[in-house]
Each structure stands twice: as C-alpha cells, then as structure tokens.
C-alpha cells in the first residue's frame, strides 16, 4: 500500500518535471522562429514550414521507413557493442592481466574519430547497413567496455563474502549482488553509448547512402532544400527525445530508487546527447 503510493507519487513527480522540459523546448522553438525572421527561409526555415514538410514526407510514406532503417542500423550496432563491450569489460574488470591487454586497445579505439571509421567501413563493407552498424559498434563498444570494466573492478569483496557465507545460489549472487552494482556503472555508459549510436548512424548513412534518415539528409543537401533538411533533423531529434524520455529516463529512475536522498541524487544526470 505504502509502496504503491510512493511509486504513484514518484511517477507524478516525473510527469510534473515534464513541464520544465516542455518550457525549455518551447523557448528553443521561439529562438528558432526569431532566427528564421532574421535570416530567411533559405538559411533557417520557420518551425511551421519544417513541421509541415515533415508531415508531407510522412504522408508520402518516407519518414517511417527511414526511422525504422536508422533504428535498425543504430540498434544493431549498439546491441553488438553492448555484448562485446560488456563481456570484454567484465573480463578486464575481473582480471588485471586482461585489463592491461584490453585497456590500450579501448583507448586507441576511442581516440579514432567516428568519421574515420565511416570511411574505413565504406571501403570494407560498401554502402550498406553493415557499414553503418559496424561504425556504431566500433565507436560505442569502448564506452560500454569502460563502464563494464569499472563496474566489475569495484565489486565489493565484503558483499561477496557475506553472500557466500549465506550459501545463496549463484543466480541470487548475480541478480542481487553483482548485477545491481554493475548496472550503476554500466547503465550511464549504455545511455551515453545509445545516444552516440544515433548520431553516428545518421552520419554514416549520410555518407554511405545506405538509406535511413542520413540518406534523406543527403538528398535534401543535394537538392539544396533547407526545409527538408530541417524536417529530417526534426525527425531524428524526435527519435532521440522519445528514446531518452520514454525509455532511458524511466529505467534510470527505476534503477536509482535506492539512491533516494543520497547526497547528489537530487539531479540525476541524463545520459546526454
């Protein structure tokens, strides 16, 4: 009963927080309109024209397939990165030797610009979705790796000893001791990785012509159609906002319940994009 009330209050609090986000987005739209009034349609089309163009493209059946294509490319790469980065990071966190072996590689991969990977992926895979997914994998895996390594490395030995002393089964050990600890490090890394995935995907699609939102942007650029370009930008921003606020933020809040009233828990940082 008490628990249910607390949960309802937290949900209400979360939704109320949405007003703040809505106000800041409306303010940005107002600035956008002002920019349009100052520089004209060719430089910055008005928000209304952009929305109308997005609407027309949606009606013509162009937007949804593009969003699905982009999501497939981004999520394909991101899920592979999560598996590879998570496993290798867990190994690096558990063993010093593995960390010494893998850490320099992760640092090196992080240092290579995403655009360089796009070029290499195009040469290796041609202008296909595989090139896009590969670029996402290679740019986000080091981020997931770092989070997983940190999570596995900082596992509290005394908690492990306590759990062993109660002879709890391995599944309980993983679910109640290892996973919650790992997630507190891994989740921020995953959120950052996912946000980066969309950006890298659009960039790789733009250069590869492999379909998706990036391809739409490339066509708009060729046609010097700023309104269409802005409409695609709007589509990708809408996608990012939906993923952030409908998926990541509720998970983040759920995972962070136990940190309530801890110092610094008042303003939970967004994964950021």
């Amino acid at each position: 009963m008490e628990e249910g009330r607390g949960r309802a209050l937290r949900a209400l609090d979360y939704m109320w927080g949405g007003w703040g986000a809505a106000s800041s987005l409306l303010l940005l739209t107002a600035l956008w309109e002002a920019g349009h009034a100052a520089y004209g349609t060719l430089v910055l089309p008005s928000p209304r024209d952009t929305v109308a163009s997005l609407w027309d493209m949606s009606a013509a059946g162009k937007v949804l397939p593009a969003i699905l294509e982009t999501s497939r490319n981004a999520l394909g790469g991101f899920l592979s990165a999560t598996v590879a980065g998570g496993i290798l990071g867990g190994m690096a966190g558990a063993s010093d030797m593995m960390r010494r072996l893998l850490q320099p590689i992760a640092t090196l991969l992080l240092g290579i610009p995403a655009i360089a990977w796009v070029v290499l992926a195009l040469l290796w895979f041609g202008g296909t979705g595989a090139a896009v997914s590969f670029t996402v994998l290679i740019t986000t895996a080091p981020i997931v790796f770092a989070g997983a390594a940190q999570g596995a490395r900082t596992l509290d030995g005394s908690l492990r000893r306590m759990a062993r002393s109660f002879r709890v089964p391995a599944t309980t050990l993983i679910r109640d001791v290892y996973l919650p600890h790992m997630l507190s490090y891994l989740f921020p890394a995953l959120a950052t990785g996912l946000a980066l995935s969309w950006k890298v995907t659009v960039m790789a699609e733009l250069l590869s012509g492999a379909g998706g939102i990036g391809d739409g942007l490339a066509v708009a650029r060729v046609q010097v159609d700023t309104v269409k370009a802005m409409a695609w930008v709007l589509a990708v921003v809408g996608l990012l906002l939906a993923v952030e606020y409908l998926m990541l933020e509720p998970i983040r809040r759920h995972l962070q319940v136990w940190r309530r009233e801890m110092p610094g828990s008042g303003d939970i940082q967004a994964g950021g994009f």
Binding site: S158, L159, M162, F166, P169, W258
Partner: peptide, 26 residues
Amino acid sequence: PVFVFQDPCLLPWRDARDNVAFGLKA
C-alpha cells in the same frame, strides 16, 4: 553456522526488509 561481520555488509540497493530476507534466498 552464520556470520555477522564488523561491517554490516548490507546490499545498498535493497531496503532493510529485503536485506534481512537475503539469506533466506538459499
């Protein structure tokens, strides 16, 4: 046989009730 350690070794992500019930998961 059961241990009580110097550090209470409670799971920070579980409330007191679930911490007490933890050993019963065996």
